[in-house]
Design a binder for these strands. Structure first.
Lengths: 301, 301
DNA sequence: ATCGACCGATACCGAGGGCGCATGGATTTG
DNA sequence: CAAATCCATGCGCCCTCGGTATCGGTCGAT
């Protein structure tokens, strides 16, 4: 025979009232079943919990100890349902968010602030992954939200998080590296660029690869090197292996030995970053955030 | 409808096995009632704890949270019976021990060491009380053990803890204060003492009062002052109001301005200190100690 | 000392709940 | 497409638990 919650509640009531009748009334019960509960409890434990002194009862030392345990158990049981319901509502829990190295510089801080504001009480776990890996992880339910570049495959919901144009990165000793500041004087036309380009890898960064290829023309693109990580590309630019088209937010990295120029309006092209998630994720915290975003998709809301 | 321990155990088993059949087998149950337990639990909480994916089950986020609470509750419930039984056996608990100011100097440390050795795991609370108050507190169940001087009233068990003889305390400038050290050269006879005596109060220290009165003779005793606390008596001796008969262990207090002399074998008298307790105390820790003392009453055993 | 009030323990009975057995429905596998 | 696997459901039985009535003991008042 093992313990029952009814026994614990009954014992706790009797221990507090020191009176079977009043305790029974508090439990919406009559006295006899309560007596039997306590008797059964004492039989299970092999211990007397009360001294029956004819007139009222008194806790034994063992009863005092058991009462302590009782209170702890009942207190835990008191909060467990609410905690569970909050978890089911997404009011508590964890959001696993992945981001790209590029995205981290421009938008991660603002995005996390928005998440905290919309889902307070939810904690965040961060992972850095390239876009294709993020989509795979989303499908495998290993992450909840990815900060990815297009295209967004079917079956995912997404939100435009950031849009910026591309700028031309050139070595600091390049003829186009003129003007004050990191971004030099005035826009340049791509037609004026005679150097090789550092291209994006069509596997790791298909989106930027395709856009740049379209902007420059396949014949002149990627003749020098292919890289998928922006820091790598900047290192190649700095080494004089060519120039590159880089999202503007990367300028803030302040990499030594690299200067930038804006592009003509005719050549300018913007690239976007999207928060992406699976609409049928089992994570209630994600569901809650998604619902909030569906109602007010503004990032600063 | 509220939670049941069976539901918690059932949920915990299913959450660990992720399989109703195996979980049911582990619980010595068939699968249908287990399914109903989980259903009832989910209905009580208003929350889905498992995703039934046709092939096996998976915990929801709410299920993860509830499982944490479950484990804590079940772990508490696991240890509660043992802890309670240990308390009932007196292997844990508290002994409330009272002592007199006099007794504290000579024997309290050794006595507490003996208690710790015989009842490890039991904590001790200390109170200083004069002997009559100790006996009252014992009767009122406010303390468990008193370190008192005789007589021990009927209805109490006791153990001789300490025995020592009385020495004569005289002012430092007294004719009898000769010899090196706190206790001067050789024994003296009470017949050689012509001074007044500081006497013990017959209310606060009846035992010492009676013994001293018998030693000296009522006519010469207590003509100067009455005191019940030994430190007070030593202060009076130092002030030159008389001499006093003091338990030898008090010499170790090293009170300034007081010297001591041993008494003739004919006059010597020993006083005792006893640990005293009520044999029908409800404190199992005391019962355990008492049983241990009944078997081996030696203090150093 | 005796009666009455109070309190916990016990006996008995009836209703509800939980278990097992048998089976259904859904999904996956060969 | 058939078999296997797994969870859900319907049903009948038994056990358990709660309520009523009563007993036994202690304490307090007269």
């Amino acid at each position: 025979m093992d313990l029952t919650l009814q026994q614990l509640r009954g014992f706790s009531a009797v221990a507090e009232e020191l009176h079977f009748g009043r305790a029974a009334a508090r439990l919406n019960l009559t006295q006899p079943p309560l007596t039997r509960q306590i008797q059964g409890l004492e039989r299970s434990l092999g211990v007397s919990l009360f001294d029956r002194t004819g007139r009222g009862v008194r806790l034994t030392a063992a009863g005092e100890v058991f009462l302590e345990h009782c209170r702890r158990v009942l207190a835990l049981l008191e909060v467990a349902p609410d905690a569970t319901r909050r978890a089911a509502d997404g009011q508590t829990g964890t959001l696993r968010i992945a981001f790209t190295a590029i995205g981290a510089y421009a938008v991660l801080a603002d995005f996390l602030a928005m998440v905290r504001k919309r889902t307070p009480g939810v904690s965040v776990e961060l992972t850095e992954l390239v876009s294709p890996d993020q989509l795979q992880a989303l499908a495998d339910l290993e992450i909840d939200i990815g900060l990815v570049r297009p295209p967004i495959p079917d079956g995912f919901e997404s939100l435009l998080v950031h849009s910026e144009d591309l700028v031309l990165a050139v070595p600091a000793d390049h003829p186009l590296a003129v003007g004050s500041g990191l971004v030099g004087a005035g826009p340049v036309s791509l037609a004026d660029v005679t150097d090789d380009y550092i291209g994006y890898s069509p596997e790791g960064s298909r989106y930027l690869h395709d856009i740049c290829a379209a902007m420059i023309g396949m014949n002149r693109y990627a003749v020098s090197q292919l890289a998928s990580q922006v820091p790598t590309m900047l290192a190649l630019v700095r080494a004089g292996l060519g120039c590159a088209l880089i999202p503007r937010s990367i300028v803030a990295m302040g990499v030594q030995g690299v200067r930038y120029r804006e592009l003509d309006a005719a050549d300018a092209h913007s690239v976007t970053l999207h928060a992406c998630w699976s609409p049928d994720s089992p994570n209630p915290a994600l569901q809650r955030l998604a619902e909030s975003l569906r109602q007010t998709p503004q990032l600063d809301a």
